[in-house]
Simulated scan of single mutants.
Amino acid sequence: MGSQELTGKVALVTGAARRGGIGRTTALLLADLGADIACLDVARPPEHAPEHGVGSPGELAELVAEIEAKGRRAIAVTADVTNGAQVNEAVDRTVVELGSLDLCCAMAGGVGYGNGIAPLLSLDEPSWNWVIDVNLKGTWLTAAAAGRAMVAAGRGGRIVTIASSAALVGTNGNTGMGVYAAAKAGVITLTQNLAAELGPHGINVNAVSPGMIGTQASAPVREQFERSGRTDAVIGSIPLRRFGEAEEIASIVAFLCGDGASYITGDAINATGGKVLG
């Protein structure tokens, strides 16, 4: 664990509240490795899609308590990553209340049935706007605000974004994930450009591109596979013959935050069980 030792570091993790999610799992792992955590979540569903699953205020408070029980400091930040003023305030709170900002994990994002999963020709405009905003704009606002704070502090830092295997050419076809794929492709390009801009300041910026991960967020898609009898075929297309787990993605994020990844920047690491090679 030496290359991942994070004692004395402060991390901002967005999309942190939902139980079993990649954001929450990442926040808990970084705390296990010694970091103090600013736990950020919008903690409410979007107005146009009230049934869309998100973390709750109770889950956010529960996460803070769980991190504090590990002996680390934590604060709950309720903020919308698509709102620049709220994101800037979240970064300022992190620096003031926890003393610094060394690690930024921009985990917030999502898509769903009734909120972005649909053929592009029939996709409604509010869903398009939300998917692009929360996945791409929110990542930019978060990473940019964190990057400014890190540059001002002059100590370097790490920024990790969440892309998706959906962003990669040839992985979609007729899945109804077109807007999500476009947003996550933008995240990869955004990450590469941020890495180029922030590298001279000692700030590494990388992305993780997960495949199908067994979280609450992906449950509707996996249930659709079951209803359509496609589960065996989908799992059969993955060389490791299983879906991934949130802990496996969090471990990659933690690696990118640690000293072992000090010479990696501008990369997008595929974590797809071999479904996407290269």
Rank of each mutant, 00 (worst) to 15 (best):
E62G: 15
L194H: 04
A118I: 02
R73I: 00
A146P: 07
A146T: 08
S56I: 04
K70C: 08
I188W: 00
T142D: 10
L194N: 06
A69H: 10
G157V: 00
A146D: 08
S164F: 07
G147N: 06
A196F: 06
G138D: 04
T175M: 12
D92N: 07
V77Q: 02
L103K: 10
N88L: 12
L136G: 01
L141S: 08
K70T: 05
G157K: 01
A76Q: 06
A196H: 02
G138N: 04
N135D: 13
A146F: 06
N172D: 13
V64A: 13
R93V: 03
A145W: 11
A166C: 14
V187K: 01
T94N: 09
V160I: 15
M177P: 00
T171F: 11
V77A: 03
G58A: 08
A118L: 01
T142N: 08
G176P: 10
E68R: 15
H201R: 09
L194W: 07
A195C: 13
R148S: 08
A90W: 04
G156K: 02
N193P: 01
V131N: 07
A185R: 12
L136I: 00
V95C: 06
V87K: 00
G178T: 07
A143D: 13
A195Q: 11
S165P: 04
L98C: 10
W128V: 14
I117S: 07
W140V: 09
D124K: 01
L60R: 13
T189A: 15
M150P: 04
T142L: 09
E62P: 07
L60F: 15
L136M: 04
A108R: 11
L198C: 12
T191N: 05
A145D: 12
A182C: 12
V81Y: 02
A118P: 05
S56F: 03
A183Q: 04
G178H: 03
T161P: 06
A74E: 07
D80W: 05
L101H: 10
K70Q: 13
W130C: 03
L194D: 05
G84T: 02
G71A: 03
G116C: 01
M177C: 10
W140K: 00
V187L: 01
T94Q: 11
G147T: 06
A182S: 14
V95L: 06
W140M: 13
E62Y: 09
A183V: 04
G84E: 13
V64D: 08
T94D: 12
T82G: 15
V54L: 11
A85C: 00
V179P: 06
V160T: 14
G116K: 00
E68C: 13
D80I: 03
Q192F: 06
W130T: 04
H201I: 01
M177Y: 11
L136K: 00
G110R: 10
S122R: 04
W140E: 05
L141G: 09
I67G: 07
I132K: 05
W140Y: 15
S100E: 03
G110D: 14
M107I: 14
I117M: 12
V96Y: 03
V151G: 10
L168D: 09
L103I: 15
P119W: 10
G99I: 05
